[in-house]
Design a protein around this nucleic acid. Structure first.
Lengths: 145, 145
DNA sequence: TCTTACATTTAGAATAATTCTTGATTTAGA
DNA sequence: TCTAAATCAAGAATTATTCTAAATGTAAGA
């Protein structure tokens, strides 16, 4: 596994600047997310982290993920009411879920676009977050049809 | 309360064309959704429907909502992992939730915008649904600041 | 170094939305 | 009217997540 620092130098500072400690558990959870970018659920993160740190508990996984989200290092991705998934991609992007194979893809915003220019927001409204979830069929699944 | 037929003539056919019956319960649930367009949760729909049909159960509310969604008369709206909300607005639109007052607003897509022109979808991907959730502060709450 | 305060981890209990199960009821059509 | 299928209803079951409380770890100051 690639060391965390290589992917995101400065992540340790991000955590401490938010008033948290960089514990071994938090480091492992973050490594797991960076190592395999397939938007795992908390339980999947748990199973993966357990392989390198067998004593870790699911409650700790939830705690660590919550801290990472709070620090802005990780984003939550929700599809319908399925279990929340976690994504360490911090660039502005939405998601696409293939309804046949279930895979979730990051979908970047086209350059030159702004959220406020796409939706007809009433005057005075200000957007802080946006959760964009597209669903359909991915190229592989469309091919097989 | 305005009769359903006035809002959406043809809804009865939509239900039967999908192989379902238009039962009194389904009618009431649909009326409740049309009467107050504030994106209620299943429990809120339950409480409102109960006033006109005291014997109805929460399980039936879930059943009716599921049927209405299946027939395409109602859409589900999810914010994070909060309880699912229900929306009878069938025009293409996203949602905006004010993080201060909690209200949810329908947000129409700007004419001339299409999902494919906003998001950088890989070649071969086809979109069937899109769930757009913006969050921030509404005009009223921004005013009070 | 020792102490103190506080953050964190952990296991298991608790919660809450939703789904499932089962039996009763209703309805449409023969 | 009769029968089969659809629907409703009550409560149990499920599941992701949060909460609780106790144990452990860590940083900073005396």
């Amino acid at each position: 596994m690639k060391p965390v620092a290589q992917e995101n130098p400065g992540y340790a500072e991000t955590i401490s600047h938010n008033g948290h400690r960089l514990t071994p558990q938090r480091r492992e959870v973050y490594e797991v997310l960076l190592a395999q970018r397939d938007h795992p659920t908390a339980t999947e993160v748990f199973l993966r982290t357990k392989q390198r740190m067998p004593s870790i508990s699911l409650a700790t996984i939830y705690n660590c993920l919550e801290t990472l989200v709070e620090c802005g290092l990780v984003k939550q991705v929700n599809v319908e009411r399925d279990a929340t998934r976690y994504c360490p991609n911090l660039t502005e992007h939405g998601h696409f879920m293939c309804e046949r194979c279930g895979k979730i893809y990051d979908v970047p915003l086209l350059a030159s676009k702004r959220v406020g220019r796409t939706w007809d927001l009433p005057v005075g409204f200000t957007v802080v977050h946006n959760d964009i979830m597209l669903r359909g069929a991915c190229a592989d699944c469309n091919k097989g049809t």
